[in-house]
Design a protein around this nucleic acid. Sequence first.
DNA 1: GCGCTATCTGAAAGCGCTTTCCTGCGGTAC
DNA 2: GTACCGCAGGAAAGCGCTTTCAGATAGCGC
Lengths: 341, 341
Amino acid sequence: MADRVHVTLRDVAMAAGVSLATASRVLNGTAKVREDLRDRVEAAASELAYTPNAHAQALVRASNETVGVICHDVSDPYFSGIARGVMRAAAQRDLLVMLASTFRDSTREVAYVSMLRAQRARAILLIGSGFEDRGWERAMDVELRPYLNAGGRVAVVSRHRSLRVDTVLPENREGAAALARALLALGHRRFAILSGPPGLSTVVDRVAGFRDALAAAGVTVDQIEEGPFNREGGYAGASALLDRGLDATCLFAATDVMAVGALAALRERGLRVPEDVSLAGFDDIPVVRDLTPPLTTVSLPLEEMGERVIALALRDGSRGRRRIERVPGTVILRASTIGPP
Amino acid sequence: MADRVHVTLRDVAMAAGVSLATASRVLNGTAKVREDLRDRVEAAASELAYTPNAHAQALVRASNETVGVICHDVSDPYFSGIARGVMRAAAQRDLLVMLASTFRDSTREVAYVSMLRAQRARAILLIGSGFEDRGWERAMDVELRPYLNAGGRVAVVSRHRSLRVDTVLPENREGAAALARALLALGHRRFAILSGPPGLSTVVDRVAGFRDALAAAGVTVDQIEEGPFNREGGYAGASALLDRGLDATCLFAATDVMAVGALAALRERGLRVPEDVSLAGFDDIPVVRDLTPPLTTVSLPLEEMGERVIALALRDGSRGRRRIERVPGTVILRASTIGPP
DNA sequence: GCGCTATCTGAAAGCGCTTTCCTGCGGTAC
DNA sequence: GTACCGCAGGAAAGCGCTTTCAGATAGCGC
C-alpha cells in the first residue's frame, strides 16, 4: 500500500498502459477513447483509489468549484439560517463552500477575502452588514477590486455603503417602520430601543425606520441603548434601561437575538411581558416562536435569502449592471406585544 | 487596468526587474534578498495588488491551508456551536475552513469527503455521529483510507463504529444515565422517550444510557417514539405519544432541539410543563435556558469540543496511536423538571 | 594581486493536470 | 495502386509557483 504519497494521474496512466492524455480524457469524458483503453483506465483509477488533485485542476483550468462565504458568527441563528440556504444551493451545483466567521472583526474579514481571493474562489459572498468605517471600506476595496477585475464574483446580503455589487437587500427600514406602525396601532406611545453596535448598516436602518415611522405619528424615542449584537448585548442593554428607569410601554430590539436577552433581563427584574411591557424583535429566527411569550418580530426568509445571494453571484451575464434584490420583511404579531397597560 | 486576468508572480518580478526566484523569496521571506531589490518587489506587489495563487502554492508545496468540516446541518445549534469552536481555533492558525452540510444524506457526506480529498485539505473533521450502515461505512472507508495513507488527518466528534480515528467523544451514555438518575431522584417512575432516527450512534447511546440507568432502578420504558432529529421531529413525536395516550410523568428527548418541539406540542395539547409532565433534553444548546420553563438537560461544552477536535486533527505525532478524548456531560436541572404530580 | 570562501541572484526543473498539436493509422475515392 | 481524409492516441507545452543548483559577485587573507 502506497504510503504518504498521492496517487497521480501518471500512476493511473502507467498502470493502464496509456498516456497521460488518454487517461485524462477517459476520466473527464472529454473525448472518445477506444473502449478497451477506457476500461483499463477506469479499472486502474478505481483500483488505485485515484482522486484528481483539485489544485492542479484549478491551476490549469483557471477556475474552480468553491465559493467563499463570510459571516460574522456561524452560531448566530440569523447567519446560520442564511448559510443553510447557501449550502443547499451550493450542494445542488456541486460547489464546495468555504465558510468563515469573522467574529465581527473587520480586520479578519479583509484577511478572509484575501485568502478567498488566493483560493481563486468562484464567488465571494458577504453575509451581514458592512462596517461603516472608512478604513475598512478602503481595505475591502483594495481586495475586492482586483478580484472582480479578474472575473471573480461578489454578492452580499445587506446594505454595504461602499460595495457596488449584487445585493440581496432585506428591507430593514421598511420592515421596522411597518412594525412601528403595528405597535402604534396597538396603542403604544412610549418606546425604548435596543440597538446594536453603531456603524452596522443593518442596525442603523432598522432603528431609523422605526423612529421615522414613530415620528410620522408624532412620537419620539429618547431611550436608546446600544450593545453588542448578541444575547448578552440584549440582556445588558435591557438591564441598563431598567437601571435608568424604563419609561416605555414597548421595547424594540434591533434583532431577535437581542430580544431574547432582553426578555431574560426583563423577567429577572420581575417585569412581565407583555402585561407590563411589550417586546418586539427583528428577523424571526426559528426559536422566537418557542419563547414564552412568542415574540413579535419582522420575519425575513433567511434560507431563501441565502439561496438568492448565491444565485445572484453565479448568474450569467454577471458583467451586466449591478442587481439589487429587495426582500421584504413581514410583521408577525405574536403574544409578546399587546396594548399598553 | 488589467481585466479578467490575474496578476502573477511573473508580473511582479518583471515590474520589479528581478527574477521569479527573487520575487518569491521576498514575498515568502524564505531567504535574504538585497534591500533595494526587496523594496522594489514589495512595491510592485502592492502596486499590482498581487495575491499568490493558493492552488499553485498548494501544488508545489503539496500541503495547504484548509481544513474541511462536515456536519449535518449548520443551522442546528448543536452543530453551529461546535463549528464556532472550530472556526475560532482555525482563525488562530490562519486556516481556512470548508464547511459542508450533508442535510443528513449519507451519500452526500461521502461525496464531500471526496471533494475535500481532492482539495488536499490538511484535515477533515466529521462532526456528528456516523451512520450505522454497512454501505456507508464501506464507502467512507474507501475515501478515507487513501486520504490517511497520503498523510491526511481525520478527526471526528461522536462515536463512529467503523472509523478508527482521533475522536472527541461526548459521554452520551453516561450523561443520559446521570440524567436518568437525577430524574429518578425527583421521584419519577414512568418515563417516555423521544428518540432520533435509528442508526445514529448518538441517539442509540443516549437512549441506551437512559434506559440502563432506569433499569438499574427497576424501571422500564415502553413508550418510545422515533422521529427526525429536529424541532419537527420532537413536535411530531410528542404529538404521537399524546395521541396514543401518554403514560409518563417525565419525557426525555434525545436532543434539546427535539425537546423544544416537544414542549410546543405538549403546550398545544394543554399539558403544563412541569406541573403535568416534566421534560428533559440533551446538549444544552444556548436557547434552552430562555425557554419557559428553562429546560433540564445534559450540558456539553460545544464550542470547546470544536476546538478540541481540530487540535486533535492538527496535533504533531499524529501517526501515533489513535486518541480518544472523552467529554463528560453535566446534568443541569432547570425548571422543566420537578417531582411527579 | 591571487585564490578561496561566503552570499546572493537567476535559470530551470518540477508539482499534477488539461489541452493543443502532431503523428500514424485505416478507410474511401479515383 | 496512389492520394486524400478523418480519427484516435501520444508528446509536449504550460498553468503559477517554490526550490535546487549553479553562477556571479564581493570580501577576505596571504
